[in-house]
Write a protein that binds this DNA or RNA. Structure first.
Length: 487
RNA sequence: GGCGCCGUACCCAAGUGGCUAAGGGAAAGGUCUGCAAAACCUUCAUUCGGCGGUUCGAAUCCGCCCGGCGCCUCCA
């Protein structure tokens, strides 16, 4: 089956056909850098991280752009001219750019800690003021926008398709009581492309209409088209950005170029806490920096990928713990595999008890179905079980067979999902160092002599002390002892 | 008020017309074992919020009801 993607624009799954054969151009809305990223951001960016990884696995050459919003969004269309970064700057007595920069680094750190691969381009809104102004100029020239008292607004009535993505009608929006009346606008649903700065506004740039700053939506149009072309393959982001952000992006971009904008729109669902959306305004937020203190990055990815990206995911300590345990199960399976591999022989006569390729097929089928990572992971767990079973009942396992399985874990588990580390098997010399390896052999040798003398007290003391140092011992039925580092 | 989503075992979570309702965690019993850990085996939803309907057949489609949530303002 070919890759199917649920397109928010058409509200159905569609076969993915790239604009240019073999290439994928993808843009994902990045964070507004005014505070630390939370676990909800992790869901979004890990989801798209896996989307990009899977495209690469399929052999596509991917160009992945994710913006950094460091200009700040308006608090409201008819607000006092204070954006969220500026607000934070006031609160923390910092230059607005210091705030943005500080949280940009923080965001990059958090993503690295979660094993999220870097986008190919991370453009800053503040570094693309010129491009944004140029885009506004075009919209004015084409008659889609109008200037009013130094600000520029997009006229939604000039763009009949407005509302297509979010399923909204302009009349309904205008009838809605939540749209504040702004005397500068012709219609309540019009949105700002350029805002004239109030005297107390610190983040501002000289523009053709006033000293001001760009509207919220224009940056994504300007930067995505600059780096990916006027029409590109995929635009992603959180469900909560469909309206107004993505709706406005489409309007601006299509109006300016006369061409289709993004061809597939992908939206990830939210993380909830006690049934409610996790968001800063509700104050029910778990920062990534705090979650990482208690759970491994593999477990966090495991937790997030165990549900579909378009499903809402309920955050709880219990769920994170379950993910941590599940993560250990996979790691243990691969460790056992690698240990067996070191002792395995090539062998000549061999009939495979199962076909590893079957599991790859299942994995791909799941991923091809709109990136169903939950089902893909089930295939990996089943592979782990099959592998464990084989090793448990086979005294002299067949080396090429084990290599094949190991390769599968590495490709699917590590490279695509990122739920297994690059180097598995902490007990292996590669990770621990030659000296440690030798000391452990000595240690276990002494302990096994104690065990033969039935000196359980001393043998257990060694095991306990090693555990305190983060080394787990495992006495096998055959009398040998294995060891690994605590996960 | 408008648009939309969800309700699957003790917990998390796949599945959206038809073989035995994935997978993980927890729990119970067993094998192994000096003990521990890991692994393996077994058990764990005749049932998918409720009630009707369509169909040879529905967790999956339709209707109503109950419960929860998202967007409509910044939000991943």
């Amino acid at each position: 089956m070919s890759l199917q993607i649920y397109n928010s624009l058409t509200r159905q799954k569609e076969e993915f056909i790239p604009l240019q054969p073999g290439r994928v151009h993808i843009y994902v809305c990045g964070p507004t850098v005014y505070s630390h990223a939370h676990i909800g951001h992790a869901k979004s960016y890990i989801s798209f991280d896996v989307v990009v990884r899977y495209f690469r696995y399929l052999g596509y050459r991917v160009k992945y752009v994710q913006n950094i919003t460091d200009v700040g969004h308006l608090l409201g269309d008819a607000d006092e001219g204070e954006d969220r970064i500026l607000k934070k700057a006031r609160e923390e007595q910092l230059d607005p750019m210091e705030v943005a920069q500080m949280y940009t680094w923080s965001y990059f750190d958090d993503m690295a800690a979660l094993g999220v691969l870097r986008p190919d381009i991370s453009p800053h809104a503040s570094g693309h003021i010129i491009e944004q102004i140029e885009l506004v100029k075009i919209l004015l020239e084409k008659g889609y926008a109008y200037e009013s008292n130094g600000s520029v607004y997009f006229d939604v009535h000039k763009f009949p398709e407005y509302g297509q993505l979010s399923g909204r009608k302009v009349e309904e929006l205008e009838a809605g009581s939540r749209v504040e009346v702004n005397p500068e606008k012709r219609h309540p649903a019009d949105f700002a492309l350029w805002k004239k700065a109030e005297p107390n506004h610190l983040m501002k740039w000289p523009g053709p209409w006033s000293v001001g700053y760009p509207g919220w939506h224009i940056e994504c149009s300007a930067m995505s088209m600059k780096y990916l072309g006027e029409t590109f393959d995929i635009h992603g982001g959180g469900l909560d950005n469909i309206f107004p952000h993505h709706e406005c992006e489409i309007a601006q971009s299509v109006a300016a170029t006369g061409k289709p904008f993004a061809r597939y729109w992908m939206h990830n669902n939210m993380i909830s806490l006690s049934g409610e959306k996790m968001s800063k305004s509700l104050g029910n937020v778990w920062n990534i920096k705090d979650v990482v203190k208690n759970y491994s990055s593999l477990a966090i990815r495991h937790f997030i990928l165990s549900s579909h990206y378009r499903s809402r995911l309920e955050y709880s300590e219990e769920a994170l713990k379950a993910a941590e345990q599940g993560s250990h199960r996979l790691l243990n399976a691969v460790e056992k595999l690698q240990e067996a591999l070191r002792a395995a022989a090539e062998g000549e006569i061999f009939s495979a008890p199962f076909s590893p390729e079957d599991y790859r097929r299942r994995f791909e089928e799941a991923m091809n179905d709109d990136f169903n990572t939950a089902r893909a992971m089930a295939a990996l767990f089943d592979l782990a079980k099959a592998s464990n079973q084989y090793l448990a009942e086979t005294p002299a396992p067949h080396k090429p067979f084990l290599v094949e399985i190991e390769q599968l874990f590495k490709t699917l588990g590590h490279e695509v999902l990122g739920i297994l580390p690059a180097e598995i098997g902490a007990g292996a010399g590669a990770v621990s160092g030659e000296l440690v390896e030798k000391l452990m052999i000595l240690n276990l040798d002494v302990r096994n002599q104690l065990r033969k003398q039935k000196n359980w007290a001393l043998a257990d003391q060694i095991r306990n002390e090693l555990q305190k140092a983060g080394v787990i011992l495992e006495d096998r039925p055959d009398g040998t002892t294995g060891w690994s580092r605590e996960k």
